[in-house]
């Protein structure tokens, strides 16, 4: 699934090392360009991400939605689909989950919490399943539909929290009422680490297992390699497309409701800091390998959390983190291709 040219390829470790080196060089150049001492900035980046218990928790908190969104991109990625829709699916998950909480705020936690998570998964699955169905049945390119549907998902959240869902007690602030305690995710005491991260880890491990063995994994692999071959063996591509896109969407939907419940405590604008796109980058970086996605999500979560601190202490704008992500993506696409081209 790693997107490289055909022909003789270099060993994975060599390519990974070279890519990392080039990225560090690019990042250093960027820091110099914005007038920061590159070594100092990069050391601080690591310190702010892992230095003490507080920053480690912050890193993991950021990693949770990234992990779930990376899974959302990687599951359809296994079928060769390029879904960039996690951002919209995340917002739909938040909408569906919030709707349930607002509908039965008095319900006990044992019912409310699982029902909310389930509703969020359904919302995300819907926003992923539709482009999956369009791709399977009508061959509408899923990259374009998922990208356009992202904007719709975000606007729908805004429409709801500025409109019918705005709590009058907020004095004009666009947000729903605070979620009841029964809807709060279980939290690791004293840390703020919530169930979302645990769900992400569980999902990643489950996917790693499900996509590595068994007849279903083999079917996905055959269809991804060649749809026509798969279909001559009676495999139903549209059905796989819908199921995998919807499953991925469900993961992103969980990310959305977990952010709303655990991080913000209510539904309000600015639910996601571009987690969908970051997750897509992580999934691509890892070649849609779930066991690799797990640590890389945590690394990138650390980068984002450290970016917050850099903004605070070094007056480096938040957009720097986006620039670094962009540089990382460009490097990952450029270096393996160039190296393999030289080698072959």
């Amino acid at each position: 699934m790693t997107p490289t040219s055909s022909g003789r390829t270099l060993p994975f470790a060599a390519i990974a090392l070279a890519t990392a080196a080039v990225f560090l060089l690019a990042a250093a150049t960027f820091f110099i360009a914005i007038g920061q001492a590159p070594l100092r900035a990069m050391i601080d980046l690591v310190l702010f991400a892992t230095g003490d218990a507080f920053s480690r928790v912050e890193s993991l908190l950021k990693a949770a939605p990234i992990l779930l969104c990376a899974i959302a991109a990687a599951i359809p990625g296994r079928l060769g689909l390029i879904s960039v829709g996690a951002e919209g699916q995340l917002h739909l998950g938040a909408i569906f989950g919030t709707a349930l909480v607002l509908a039965m705020p008095q319900a006990p936690a044992i019912i409310l919490l699982p029902a909310t998570l389930l509703a969020a998964a359904v919302g995300g699955a819907l926003w992923g399943g539709v482009p999956g169905w369009l791709r399977g049945r009508l061959s509408v390119n899923e990259t374009i539909t998922t990208l356009v549907m992202n904007y719709l998902g975000i606007l729908m959240v805004n429409g709801l929290v500025f409109g019918p869902w705005r709590d009058p007690a907020n004095l004009g602030w666009p947000a729903t009422a605070s979620f009841p305690d029964a809807a709060r995710l279980p939290v690791l005491p004293g840390t703020g680490l919530h169930l979302g991260l645990f769900l992400g880890v569980l999902l990643a491990l489950g996917c790693a297992f499900a996509f590595s063995r068994g007849i279903r994994a083999e079917r996905v692999r055959v269809l991804a390699m060649n749809r026509k071959v798969g279909e001559t063996y009676g495999l139903n591509f549209p059905r796989f497309a819908v199921i995998l896109m919807a499953t991925g969407g469900a993961a992103a939907g969980l990310a959305g409701i977990c952010e709303a419940i655990a991080v913000q405590g209510r539904l309000q604008p600015g639910l996601s800091l571009g987690y969908g796109l970051t997750g897509f980058l992580v999934a691509w970086l890892c070649g849609h390998r779930f066991l690799l996605i797990l640590p890389v999500s945590i690394l990138v979560g650390g980068l984002l959390a450290a970016g917050d601190s850099l903004q605070l202490f070094h007056k480096i704008p938040a957009s720097s983190a986006t620039i670094l992500q962009g540089l990382l993506f460009v490097t990952v696409l450029a270096v393996p291709g160039v190296l393999n081209r030289r080698a072959s």
Partner: peptide, 19 residues
Amino acid sequence: GARANQLASGIAVWMLALG
């Protein structure tokens, strides 16, 4: 030049421009 996937490359360029 690097024969990268066209869709992924476009998204990378977009991300960089966004930042």
